[in-house]
């Protein structure tokens, strides 16, 4: 982890929560420092861009070869030669630049990106990430740029629901799904809480709509409070 957190003790937001997806995206955006180079993964993480103000100076990277990506294209703006990593037509901002795929992943792998935000099936207490394959026998494996992003960005933030549809926690002692990367995630943003993960295990930064103690009873991983 390279980005500092902005509180010195665990905060319980009992009056709000669980967060909506849009509120989760706003929480992630709040924690991205001004001027960062950021990659937002396909799907839910793209919503983070709705909460980044132009004055923040944050520059969005898309792995298909662009820095300075703008919002989704509408109407006459749509250009089949200009898409994001999800193949959705996007726009370019003033000062944008293009580069080929090997350069795009070199800047990622080389540690030049400050933050990437990814979705996940599971995150382990030490920051292992599983987000590319369920391992189901009939599933067609598809990894895209997930493994490169996971080990490349200086900070990897995961944005996910804390519990799967079957009620099982997605923040786990050890991932049971096939791994995307080892010890690569630094933070996990969920509707119920924001966590730091890493070599020291799981630290709760803030909770939404429940107490730290209530949260602890719903998870199988040991939790720590953030203390000054």
């Amino acid at each position: 982890m390279t980005i500092e957190i902005n509180v010195d003790r665990t905060v319980e937001h009992l009056g709000r929560g669980p967060l909506s997806r849009d509120e989760m995206a706003a929480t992630v955006a709040r924690d991205i420092p001004d001027g960062s180079f950021v990659n937002l993964g396909i799907g839910q993480p793209t919503q983070v861009s709705n909460h980044l103000s132009p004055s923040s100076g944050v520059v969005l990277h898309t792995e298909n070869g662009m820095l300075g990506m703008g919002p989704v294209a509408e109407g006459d703006q749509i250009d089949p030669d200009l898409t994001n990593a999800g193949k959705i037509p996007v726009t370019e901002l003033v000062g944008a630049c293009y580069f080929h795929h090997a350069d795009s992943f070199a800047m990622m792998r080389g540690g030049h990106l400050d933050v990437c935000v990814l979705g996940a099936f599971q995150v382990s207490e030490h920051g292992d990430l599983a987000n590319w394959h369920t391992g189901a026998p009939d599933a067609i494996p598809a990894v895209g740029g997930a493994m490169d992003l996971a080990i490349g960005a200086k900070d990897v933030f995961v944005m996910m629901s804390l519990f799967a549809k079957d009620g099982s926690a997605k923040l786990v002692p050890t991932c049971t799904y096939p791994l995307t990367g080892l010890a690569c995630v630094s933070r996990v943003y969920t509707e119920h809480a924001t966590f730091l993960v890493g070599p020291d295990g799981v630290t709760v930064v803030e909770t939404f709509g429940l107490t730290y103690d209530e949260l602890a009873t719903r998870l199988d991983v040991p939790l720590r409070r953030l203390e000054p």
Partner: peptide, 17 residues
């Protein structure tokens, strides 16, 4: 799914590199 094509999945950056 019908076994008529082989697949090797490679991380995108590794494919390029």
């Amino acid at each position: 799914r019908s076994g008529r094509i082989d697949l090797e999945v490679v991380p995108q950056g590794n494919l390029a590199e």
